[in-house]
Structures are given as structure tokens and as C-alpha cells.
Simulated assay, not measured.
Amino acid sequence: MNFHSKVKKVAKNPLATAILLLGFEKFKFIPDKKYISVMYKYYMGKKLNLDNPQTFNEKLQWLKIYNRKDEYTIMVDKYKVRDYVACKIGEEHLIPLLGVWDSAEEIDFDTLPNEFVLKCNHNSGTGMCICKNKTLLNIENVRKELKKGLKENYYYLGREWPYKNVQRKIIAEKFMVDESGCELKDYKVLCFNGEPKLIEFHQGRFTDHQSQDYYDINWNKTDISQGEVAGFGCSDKTVPIPVCFDKMMEFSRILAKGIPQVRIDWYAINEQLYFGEITFFDGCGFDKFDNPNDDAKLGAWIDLKSL
């Protein structure tokens, strides 16, 4: 986007621009419906239709407002969801937990192994620490970032209601690598009315070579893409189907049962399937598709009439 386009976008969306510049929590007084409508128009470039939503991103906004169940709060809590998942599919599919704390000061780094992952249980990214060598870790900075993460109420960012009342904690998990010795590949299974339809496949996360591809449930690579907004595009290769793919689909159905639309994330490591997280609003419902027809296609898969 060139300079003149940016100026034009700011002029058309002064409230959204203020929210992005000053911080979303400063605008928590704005009702959810108003806030969502403002931010949707900023990111998508068009007015939000909540009376008759048609596209994937429109329907996600509708679900934010009108589909609120207490169990969703447990399902997005990266700590409490562990018991939920263990009950549904077995604890052997959980990444080993190394510790849980209410504050950054409580963490005893001496008890942690040389490699580990620290993160807050209620947000996405803020405060996360991926440690590959504890001897090189700046513990003071890690505590500082975790404190920042604990203060964040992730709900106010995109008004994703399930995050609003998560009891905030810090968790440590085992650092995992796949059979190649590299950081994990993400398999994000998009389920619609309880059925897997697409797999959003990420490679090279947290690197300069990140890619995002969409595969169908027969592991055929599709031409669906969101590279323009994500800042990274599709890979130029088709990867082999994971050995535990059938189990991934089976478990996704179990965890997505009774939910209009949800994303179940997995890691496949040495032929073993590990649960990642549950996300109700992929990209917060603000990520454009490079082809608008794909937004409409995915939107048709969400049935709101049953709610």
C-alpha cells in the first residue's frame, strides 16, 4: 500500500486508526457490535453485514456477538483446555507441561530444562518465549515480557468473547521439534458444523521463510491464499500427507462437535499427533482472502440457522 492509499484509509477510518495507534484496551468502553463493525470496515474495506452475513469473515463477526457459550472460555484457555482435550482424546496427545504460575516472579528458571517454551494461557504471542539455550536467556527481559502478556486482555483486541474471562496464567511446555530437527509445522484444521473442510498448513513460523498453504481433506493443495494480508505467501511445493492424518481428522471432529465453526491446531511429530490449541475466529475474522470468492465459499460452509 502506497503513502496516498494509507492516508486515504486513515481519513476514512479515523476511529479504527486511533484504536490501532493508542491501543485497543483504551477503547474498551465501545460496545462489541460497534467496535467489530468499525474494525471490520478498516481491515476488509467494506461495511459489515450482520443482518444477513454471507462470507466467512462476516459470519465469524456474527458468531463473536451471538454465539457465546461458557465452555468456549475453557477451550481457548491454553492451560484448562489440556484437561478438556485429555478427557476427549487422551493425554498422550498433549505436549508435556513443565510448569504453571500466576506471575512471572514465581518462575524458578533453575528447574526448567535447557530448552522450553513459556507463554501466557489467554492470548496469542505477547509474552511468549521460545528458549533453545537457557544459558543465553535474558531472564529479566523474559519476565518483563511475560508481565506485559499477563496484563493484556486479549478479548479487547478483536472482541473475541471466549478470551474475556480466562483466568490468566503462565505455562511452560516442552520444546518440541519434528523428525527433521526443525521447528514444528502447524496443521490448523478448519471445521464447519463439526466437519473438517480445510487444513491451513504453516511452515517456517517465526522465521523469514514462513509460508501458508491450504489443503483439502483429501490432502490436495488448493489455490486458496491470504498472502497479501499475511505478508507471506504459499510455498512452491506440495508436502507429503502426514502419517497421522486420519487420526487428525478423527480427533478434529471430536473436538469440533456441535460448534458452527472452529479451528483445531495440531503438530505431527515422529508419527505422533499432538494438540496445539482451539481457535474460534481464524485471523480474528479480519484476514482478507486474495480471491474474494474464497471468502464467500468458506462462508457458505457455516450454517447459522441452527443457532
Rank of each mutant, 00 (worst) to 15 (best):
N2L: 06
C131Y: 11
G285S: 11
K237T: 07
H4G: 00
V262P: 14
M128E: 01
F281G: 01
D83I: 08
V117W: 00
E145K: 14
T73C: 08
E271Q: 15
Q203E: 12
D108N: 13
L22K: 15
K6E: 09
N153M: 06
P292D: 05
D290H: 02
D186F: 02
F251H: 06
Y40G: 00
V85R: 03
N291S: 09
G194D: 05
S5T: 12
V10F: 15
Y163Q: 14
E145I: 00
N2D: 15
V177K: 11
F245L: 09
N293R: 08
Y274E: 01
I278D: 09
G125A: 08
N57F: 10
H209Y: 12
F289M: 03
D216F: 08
I170Y: 04
W62F: 02
K80S: 10
P162E: 12
L157K: 14
C284W: 10
G283R: 00
Q167T: 11
K237F: 00
V38L: 12
E179N: 00
A296Y: 08
S103D: 06
E152K: 09
L298N: 02
K88N: 03
K151Q: 15
Y42Q: 01
E173A: 10
I241D: 07
K148N: 10
Y66Q: 07
L60D: 00
E91Q: 05
D77V: 11
Y155G: 12
N193L: 08
Y163N: 12
Q272N: 15
K41G: 09
G99L: 11
I89N: 06
M248L: 14
D290P: 06
L304G: 05
L20R: 15
T279D: 06
K305C: 09
E271C: 04
E228L: 13
A86P: 07
S252L: 05
K47P: 08
N220R: 09
G283Q: 08
N13G: 04
Y163H: 14
